[in-house]
Design a binder for these strands. Structure first.
Lengths: 198, 198
DNA sequence: CATATTTTATGACTTAAATCATAAAACGAA
DNA sequence: TTCGTTTTATGATTTAAGTCATAAAATATG
């Protein structure tokens, strides 16, 4: 999103997290802007029964957790480091200061938020009313478009675990496993020693 | 969002729609910025079986359909007038032109998009993994906070039909009807001659 | 390298929501 | 005021996904 150099100019400091560390927790007030230098971060919720729902997974150069920052709200979800992760962090005031001086960055935020809202819209319609197979295919296709999936000879390698797919679509692991098998049979995707390709 | 005066200064024109008219359709390219002068607009999808999913309902002074506009995408959903509606419309270029000259409006968009992303995040977690009653209560509570529901003596009047609640939560009418009754029994809301209060 | 943990896999069973059918209220329009 | 439509309502039945149990394969870790 924003160059590290510019973030540092506005007071950005680097922070390191180990895999599974919480970066922030649901219901805490948003006060900081986070951007990933290296690593992988997921935002998630747990419902009453302890089932995880993954709101999104974020990678290098991406930011996360800004919506509540802009609207003075508490976080609607946790942020957790999926791998060891280095972030650069600035305060809300530093960010607003930067936005005032760099109108191009405002537009970047507008585009970034639009992109994510678009994803949520597509997935909302899917999750609410489609069968599991459809839901999984849409998630996969969207992820290929948006995330850094590598094209291999067998197709795009979907580097999600079945559990992650379940948590991203609101399904159960077993359902995902069965649905993926069924999708393979129909020729919609390939499974080569347990890895999923599309 | 933006004052009508300013929109007109940048070439805004008024357009009128009758109840149930389409304003735009899913999969068409986003080229215009729409803001409601009066009336009510819903954005929706239909899945393969024809079941409707309502992405959101918008009222006076609200805009809708900008995310695909900012990211050069097709609309992820239809926009339909729920009542007779008057809109003010400007082109994408006119809007970008305006944003360049009015940095405060950029921030307004950032906040607006953030707000909507926040809603989608909350509802995504709900829809994916909660039981119908929980889902409905969250929708109602969110709608009270965000939309113009009037507080009456019995509480906030939820002016959604059971069908609309079903379409907003991804449930079926019958399920919503039964869940609302159950919620009334538990004292979570009131039903006074078929109207729902919270 | 051996052991522990995670991920994928599968069958049997349960359950909650969808589906289907039917109808009574409420509302709108002619 | 009547007729047609929409909304709310309720019972019976079906079904697809969840749940539970169990295990093999793969991967990580000391």
């Amino acid at each position: 999103m924003i160059t590290v150099a510019l973030l540092e100019k506005y007071g950005g400091i680097r922070k390191n997290y180990k895999s599974d560390d919480f970066i922030f927790k649901e219901n805490s007030l948003a006060l900081l802007y986070f951007q990933i230098i290296s690593g992988e971060v997921k935002m998630n919720n747990y419902n009453e029964e302890g089932k995880e729902f993954i709101q999104g997974i974020f990678y290098e150069n991406q930011c996360f957790g800004e919506p509540p920052l802009f609207i003075e709200q508490v976080y609607p979800a946790n942020a957790v480091a999926v791998t060891d992760t280095e972030l650069i962090v600035i305060t809300k005031n530093q960010l607003l200061d930067m936005l005032q001086n760099h109108s191009d960055i405002s537009l970047k935020f507008i585009k970034n938020l639009s992109q994510r809202l678009y994803y949520k819209s597509v997935m909302a319609a899917e999750i609410s009313s489609q069968d599991p197979e459809h839901r999984i295919l849409r998630l996969i296709d969207y992820s290929i478009k948006q995330l850094n999936f590598k094209k291999e000879t067998a197709g795009f390698h979907i580097h999600f675990t079945r559990q992650q797919i379940a948590d991203l679509t609101g399904l159960r692991v077993e359902t995902v496993i069965r649905a993926i098998k069924s999708l393979e049979k129909k020729g919609d995707l390939k499974i080569i020693n347990r890895k999923v390709y599309r």
